[in-house]
Structures are given as C-alpha cells and as structure tokens.
C-alpha cells in the first residue's frame, strides 16, 4: 500500500505528503526515539504520539515511509515546515495507537 492511499482513506488525514508514492511494507509503533531508530525498518509506517521536531530526524534517518500521529496529536507549524523541507510524510488519525495498528494490519 502506498502512503497516499492511506492518506485518502477516511480515517487518516495528510499533514504533509511530499512523497505519497512511498510504499508501506510494515508498521512500527513506539515513542522512545532511540528505540524506534534502532528497531523500525526502512519503509515502515511509524505510529507515535510524539510530536517534537526530533521525530523528523528519526523518520528521515531510519527511512520510514511515513509518520502516523495517533490520537489527533497536533504539530507546531515549524515541525510541519521542516517536514516538507526534509520530504517526510506525516499523517494524522483520531484513532489511538492500538486501533491504528489493528487497522493497518488489515489494510497494508
């Protein structure tokens, strides 16, 4: 499944989508950034509730296909702008982390 396909579903909203054609090959869930960096695989969708700017470095360097912010977590404008600069896809959902992961396991 491509990130843009997920962004087009009713349950998700695209905050940034500079690389919508990226494939999602799996899912990683976590909020401790170093832990995520060490374990998330390239092209995973990363589900988190962390919203500070360092999530962009983690997503970029571990090469995840998108960040999914669960529970409608909001981002500061500066984070959104930097995400566009770094070409990082960010989606948002109302669902909590568990239900996001359950949903993703059905659709990807």
């Amino acid at each position: 499944m491509k990130v843009k396909d997920l962004a087009n579903s009713d349950l998700f909203t695209a905050i940034t989508l500079p690389q919508g054609d990226r494939e999602i090959n799996g899912v990683y869930v976590g909020d401790l950034l170093s832990w995520v960096m060490g374990r998330a695989q390239s092209d995973n969708a990363w589900v988190t509730i962390m919203s500070n700017i360092n999530i962009l470095a983690v997503a970029s360097l571990s090469d995840t296909s998108c960040i999914i912010l669960a529970e409608s977590v909001k981002l500061e404008e500066e984070v959104i702008k930097t995400a566009m600069d770094k070409e990082i896809n960010i989606l948002s959902t109302n669902m909590d982390i568990y239900n996001t992961a359950v949903y993703l396991s059905k659709v990807i």
Binding site: L32, S34, N52
Partner: peptide, 16 residues
Amino acid sequence: SLGFGAGMGLPNMKRY
C-alpha cells in the same frame, strides 16, 4: 520528555 534518554544511544551505535 523529548523522547530521548532511553539508554539506547551507544547500544544502537554498536548494533548498527
């Protein structure tokens, strides 16, 4: 609170 300090930094560096 910024999501760091998990004690994974050096182990990750070794791992990778």
